[in-house]
């Protein structure tokens, strides 16, 4: 399971993609993914907000994650 990283998320993790299945537990839902991220990278807890997109749509905490989904971490946006 790949998770795309943008903006400050990329800086926090130090790369543009996380491969979650490489020897780790695969999160079943958005909330599990967030917990896992914060435990691996505590810097995520310090952000103004932390959203997850599933298949390029904002996803609420209860959304389940499947193998084929395109998952992305959306740190606070600042376009415009």
């Amino acid at each position: 399971m790949e998770v795309l990283l943008f903006g400050i998320a990329k800086d926090i993790v130090g790369k543009t993609v996380i491969h979650l299945d490489e020897g780790g537990e695969v999160p079943a839902s958005v909330s599990e993914l967030k917990e896992q991220l914060i435990s691996s990278y505590p810097e995520f807890a310090k952000l103004s907000s932390l959203a997850i997109a599933v298949n390029s749509e904002y996803a609420t905490d209860n959304v389940s994650l499947g193998k084929g989904d395109e998952i992305a971490i959306i740190p606070p946006v600042s376009g415009g």
């Binding site: 943008f6 946006v77 376009g79």
Partner: peptide, 21 residues
């Protein structure tokens, strides 16, 4: 500005900052 996933990094002389992070 509220919703579209675009991120702005401001580059100053001695640092850079992801805006609103």
């Amino acid at each position: 500005k509220e919703r579209v996933p675009i991120w702005k990094k401001e580059l100053f002389k001695n640092k850079s900052v992801w805006v609103s992070a």
